Amino acid sequence: MNLPETPAQVDPLQVRALRAFNRFYTQRTGLLDPYLDSDFSLTEVRVLYELAHHAPCTASDLKRRLLLDAGYLSRIMRRFGAAGWVTRSRSTVDARQLALSLTPEGRAVFEPLQQRSRDEAARLLAPLPAAQRDLLVTALARAQSLLESPGTPTSHTAVLRDPRPGDMGWVVQQHGELYAREYGWNSEFEALVAEIVAGMIRQHDPVHERGWIAELNGERVGSVFVVRKSETEAQLRLLILSPAARGLGLGARLTDECLAFARAKGYRRMVLWTNSNLTAARAIYAQRGFVLEHSEPYRGYGQDLVGETWALKL
């Protein structure tokens, strides 16, 4: 059995190479400057990110994910609480702890920072040809995997990419399989999704519409799409996650990508249609300010269901 080397045994040339990359990366990304030209530290923005994408979560969850000192985190949370950015409620998992979530005001503070971060990442990637961007993303995922501490859970960083040929067939398949297995819906639903997908492909407007495929370790695990309903209104469609991708905040991340795209394109409102029994998806929509506008019982896919229309003013 090969025992791990001690720090003193590591080749100094390898240490020098890693430090050189760290200096290069911090300079290119501006990590030594005020973060994203805001009044926040990098750590504070990381806390906001966790609250935006993994809420509700406890202070213990935040400490574990971000490796933060308890006192430092407490000071950050006091500041966020005094500003009205965080809400606290009794945890449904452990009644001894408080579950933390962003308020609408907190989300309004975080979303512009998130968009600026996306823009900065896009600025770094834009000069590279598409093939080289794919190589870089794969290399980064490999580096993260190699640097994970032995015995700790993998962080499961997902890659969101544009749809490719064959992906839309996978979207139909996933809807058919998952909704049959988890909700007992019959093939009528798969037929409906196939019709929606066919229409989206035939009528796709690349300027005003976009879709994302989520991957974990090179495997497709999720999708979501923004389609144009009018000059001022967009529709969120076909949000789905495979069981392997749940609990990672990926549904929230996909939804946030849709909202950021819609806002950037000047849409004033986003709508979506869902069903009352899809509780996980409905929670994601509600946390982002979507409001239930209309509901109606109906018989479909072999079940008695309640269809719902949700909307968000952008």
Rank of each mutant, 00 (worst) to 15 (best):
Q235M: 09
R79Q: 09
L32W: 03
A234K: 00
L135T: 15
R164A: 15
L314G: 02
K313G: 13
Q9E: 15
T6P: 00
A82W: 00
P297D: 07
A264M: 02
Q115F: 06
S155Q: 15
R142H: 15
L100H: 01
S242E: 07
E111R: 14
E233C: 08
E209F: 10
A126G: 04
P4W: 03
V221H: 07
V47A: 07
W185A: 04
W310G: 05
H208V: 07
A234P: 02
E231M: 10
S145P: 00
G266Y: 05
W273T: 13
T92L: 10
L259I: 13
R299W: 10
A280S: 13
A286G: 01
S74D: 14
I196K: 12
E233I: 15
S295T: 04
P163H: 14
A191S: 12
S41E: 09
A59M: 12
I240D: 02
L3D: 09
P4M: 11
L238V: 05
V86F: 00
F24L: 14
D167S: 05
E257T: 02
R75E: 09
D205K: 13
V10S: 03
L216F: 09
S230M: 05
F80A: 02
R107P: 01
E5N: 04
L248N: 03
A158T: 06
R75P: 00
V93L: 06
R288E: 10
P129C: 12
A131I: 08
E233S: 03
F80I: 03
M77G: 01
Y285K: 07
D61C: 06
F261G: 06
R220M: 06
L239V: 06
A8S: 14
L178G: 05
D33I: 00
W310E: 06
S38W: 11
L42D: 00
H53T: 08
Y25L: 14
T255E: 02
E111Y: 07
G266C: 00
P34H: 01
N22M: 10
L140W: 15
H54I: 06
S89F: 03
D304P: 04
M1Q: 06
K265D: 04
R181L: 11
E231K: 10
T6S: 14
P12M: 11
V109W: 02
G30H: 05
P129V: 11
E209V: 07
L32P: 00
G211Q: 05
Y298R: 05
L113M: 07
F225W: 15
T152F: 05
A252L: 03
N277G: 09
L254C: 02
I76S: 06
L128Q: 13
V291C: 04
G84W: 04
H175R: 09
F290S: 11
D37F: 09
Q303S: 11
P163T: 11
Q235D: 06
V221L: 12
